[in-house]
Design a protein around this nucleic acid. Structure first.
Lengths: 217, 217
DNA sequence: TGTACATCAGTGAACGCGCGTTCACTGATGTAC
DNA sequence: TGTACATCAGTGAACGCGCGTTCACTGATGTAC
């Protein structure tokens, strides 16, 4: 398999001196790293390696490792938002407003859980801000609708109020209650004691959790 | 301030060749590190430094860094269990069984949230198993009652069934639903978007969450 | 259309860091006689 | 009660690792004349 003189499994050596779009390549590599190992796996040197470039070349495009990590996180948030929008898009519109509003909230919760299971690394990169992140997290990036995952949830809960399903007095901070439940379950699943549960059971448990939130909110 | 010739802020140099109880000292240092920085901060070299001992001395007592981390984690779990037991102990017993059972579940949830806020580093060490932990986590260590936090929750939910508050059909896996909610909120608080919320509001939100779970279970 | 030049993306080499872990050692302790 | 000795807790020195980051550079590109 040694058709050329570069070690296999390395990206093909560039023929050009300039890369073309190194920023994009580094970001893609970073996303791949996050996908496989979560935020801690997003490492400058490995990203440059995958892009077929010398380590310090990254500094033309990202001021620091943190800057790259933030960019990856934005991509992860956008991916999560996209997953939610996709789940919302398939909902039938021809139903009573109350049912529709409820279905939207359920869809968002379901999408959150599905995303966590399908892409645990990206999920952790998007939503498990490590302690050193502090207050530095900028405005989260959006899906196609221009809304980030948290805003999507907020809007869905607003619609619950509009449809008369949720008492307006209970509205304030309700998104945090819903988010907590679904976020906690996601974590128990992706690296907690629920790791070993079969996917079908996990889905059923997720739906029970969402039932619980719907009833309890 | 240089009364002796050792750098300040270092533990006083031992006069004896043997340490006395190095294992304990390393464990204590590890717990302190976890308290300040979570599981990732539990670092062999720093623990030995704090114990006033050369780095490799640790290997007389712990086979690896992981072994120390597990010991610290057990201590953190025991601390969490202890906090729950304390919260349970102050509950008045002279109330209807249904109310009592409910109060016990609430007490456990409240203690969980309080523990997360009071000791975020230990909380993360106990309950946020990093992905590389895999299946290696042994049986969790216990509080005074001999039960770990999860078992305490399980028993409390059993009592909910016994008291007729929770339908037996809903019992299976119910602890995971409750745990998810409270676990998620704890994480949103200790290193999520709720970091900045005033403690009083956080407590209120926690109680609303527990209300939600109680109603929705 | 052709040439001089400024720009700046990627190179090459090196830095200091702290980590986990291994090796052969030394010297205080407690036990057997 | 005193001495020889085995045990094994802690020492000293070193290893290799991968990381983020800085420096002075080089050479392809695109623009101005």
């Amino acid at each position: 398999m040694k058709l050329n003189n570069v070690p296999e499994s390395l990206p093909p050596a560039r023929s050009t001196y300039r890369h073309g779009d190194l920023r994009r390549a580094l970001l893609d590599a970073g996303i791949e790293l996050a996908r496989d190992g979560g935020p801690d796996a997003v490492v400058l040197r490995e990203a440059t390696r995958r892009a077929g470039v010398v380590p310090n070349a990254a500094y033309r495009h990202f001021g620091s490792r943190q800057a790259l990590l933030w960019a990856v996180r934005e991509a992860a948030l956008a991916a999560a938002a996209g997953a939610m929008e996709k789940e919302l898009a398939v909902l039938p519109c021809d139903q009573p407003p109350a049912d529709f509003a409820r279905a939207q909230v359920r869809a968002i919760g379901t999408a959150y859980l599905r995303f966590a299971q399908a892409e645990p690394g990206l999920f952790r990169t998007a939503f498990v801000v490590s302690a050193e992140g502090d207050g530095q997290l900028g405005p989260a990036k959006a899906g196609a609708s221009g809304l980030d995952p948290f805003q999507l949830l907020g809007k869905a809960i607003d619609r619950l109020v509009d449809a008369g399903v949720l008492d307006a007095a209970r509205r304030p901070n309700a998104e945090y209650l819903a988010w907590s439940s679904v976020h906690g379950l996601a974590l128990l699943i992706i690296d907690g004691p629920l790791r070993a549960m079969p996917p079908a059971d996990l889905h059923a448990l997720g739906q029970r959790l969402i039932d619980m939130v719907e009833r309890g909110l």
